[in-house]
Amino acid sequence: MAVIISKPGIDELSEVLGTLREWQDDAAPVQLHPGDVGWYWRFGAQQTAEALRTWSRDGRVLAVGLLDGATILRLTTAPDVRRDEELARQLVADVTRPEHGVLPEGAVNVEAPSGTLVNDLLAAEGWGTDAPFTPLLRDLTDPVEEAGVRVEVVGPDQVSERTAAQRASFDVSTFTDERWHAMAAGPLYADARCLLGYDDAGEAVGAITVWSAGPGKPGLIEPLGVHPHQRGHGYGTALTVAGAAALRELGSSSALVITESTRAAAVATYMSAGFERLPERLDRRRAG
C-alpha cells in the first residue's frame, strides 16, 4: 500500500505520542522528541493536533512531523525506515508541494534526523542548509550533583513566576499563565517538570522545563531561561544541573538539549553542567 499523510484528530493524539515515545533511543540520531510536542501544547490540544502530521503505510505510523510555526517542519521517522525510499519520496513530495497542505510556498525549513534519505532527496531537489544547531547530551547513569542554588518544582502558586521568568528570558516569548495551564493539562506534562531557581534574596532568577519520554529513554530540556540581569552568575548552569537531576528521577537515561550553534554562551552553560557536544545538525532550507 502507498504511504498516506494524515492530520491526526484530538482523539488520535495519544496513539501518535505513544509512537513517538517508542522511537526515542540514546543510540538514535537526535530527533523530534515528545517534549517538543509537550512544549507546543501550551497553545492547546486543538492547535497541537492541527500542527501535527503523520505518514502511515498499512496502518502503521512511519513518520511524525510537527509544524513549529508556518514555515518549519520538525520531522522524524521510525528507526527502521530512515532509508525507506517510498517513504522518503512521499515525504519530499508532501513538503515541496504547497497543495499537499504541509508547508507553504517560499522560504521553508525541514528538520530531520541526520542520515535519513529524505535529507538526501531534499538536497537533490536543490534545498540548501540553514544555520547549524548544536545538540548536547548528559548521561544520567550516575547520580547528579547538587545544583548549588534553591530550586523548586513549579506548583499552582508559582505559575506567574514561571511565566514571568520565560517572558523576561526571551524577548519574543508569549508564555502566559493561561498557556502554562494548557501545557500542564496536556498528557505529556505528567512526565515533565517545571523548575524555578531563586537567588539568596528569594527572587526567581530563571526557569527550566524538562520532559521525560519514559524510563530508559533520553529526556529533553525545552526550554531554559535566565533573567537578563541575573546572567553571568552561574544560575543557568545550576538550573541545568537541577533539570538533569529531575530527569534522572523520572527514569531518563540521558538529558538532551539543542541550541543554535551561534549561542556560544548557551553552549558553554550546558557544557559546564556536564553535557557533551554532539555533531552539529543542519536543517534543510528552501530559499524563498
Score class of each variant (00 low, 15 high):
1 M>F: 05
2 A>V: 02
4 I>Q: 14
5 I>E: 05
6 S>E: 15
14 S>K: 15
14 S>N: 08
14 S>V: 05
19 T>N: 10
20 L>E: 08
20 L>K: 01
23 W>G: 08
25 D>Q: 06
28 A>D: 04
29 P>E: 14
32 L>T: 13
35 G>K: 13
35 G>W: 14
36 D>W: 11
40 Y>F: 08
42 R>T: 03
46 Q>P: 05
48 T>N: 03
53 R>A: 02
56 S>H: 13
60 R>N: 12
60 R>L: 07
63 A>L: 10
65 G>W: 06
66 L>V: 08
66 L>F: 11
66 L>G: 12
72 I>N: 08
75 L>T: 07
85 E>R: 01
87 L>V: 00
87 L>Q: 06
90 Q>K: 15
91 L>E: 03
96 T>K: 00
98 P>R: 07
98 P>A: 13
102 V>W: 06
106 G>Q: 03
106 G>V: 03
109 N>T: 09
113 P>S: 12
114 S>E: 15
117 L>F: 10
118 V>M: 14
118 V>G: 01
123 A>P: 07
124 A>S: 07
125 E>Q: 13
126 G>N: 03
128 G>L: 01
135 P>G: 14
135 P>R: 14
136 L>N: 01
137 L>R: 15
137 L>E: 01
139 D>E: 12
140 L>N: 02
140 L>Y: 07
141 T>L: 04
144 V>I: 15
149 V>S: 13
151 V>C: 11
154 V>E: 04
156 P>I: 07
161 E>A: 12
163 T>K: 08
167 R>Y: 00
170 F>G: 12
170 F>L: 02
175 F>A: 15
178 E>N: 11
180 W>P: 02
180 W>Y: 15
188 L>Q: 05
188 L>G: 08
190 A>Y: 09
194 C>L: 11
195 L>Q: 06
196 L>Q: 11
196 L>H: 14
196 L>T: 14
197 G>T: 00
198 Y>D: 04
199 D>P: 05
202 G>E: 01
206 G>R: 00
206 G>E: 03
207 A>N: 01
207 A>M: 12
209 T>D: 08
210 V>W: 13
210 V>A: 12
212 S>H: 10
219 G>C: 09
219 G>N: 05
225 G>V: 14
226 V>L: 01
226 V>T: 06
230 Q>N: 06
230 Q>V: 04
232 G>M: 04
242 A>Y: 05
243 G>N: 02
248 R>T: 06
249 E>H: 07
249 E>D: 05
249 E>F: 00
249 E>L: 02
250 L>E: 05
251 G>I: 02
252 S>E: 08
253 S>R: 00
254 S>Y: 09
258 I>W: 00
267 V>C: 06
268 A>N: 10
269 T>R: 09
270 Y>N: 10
280 E>T: 06
282 L>N: 05
286 R>M: 12
288 G>D: 09
288 G>T: 09
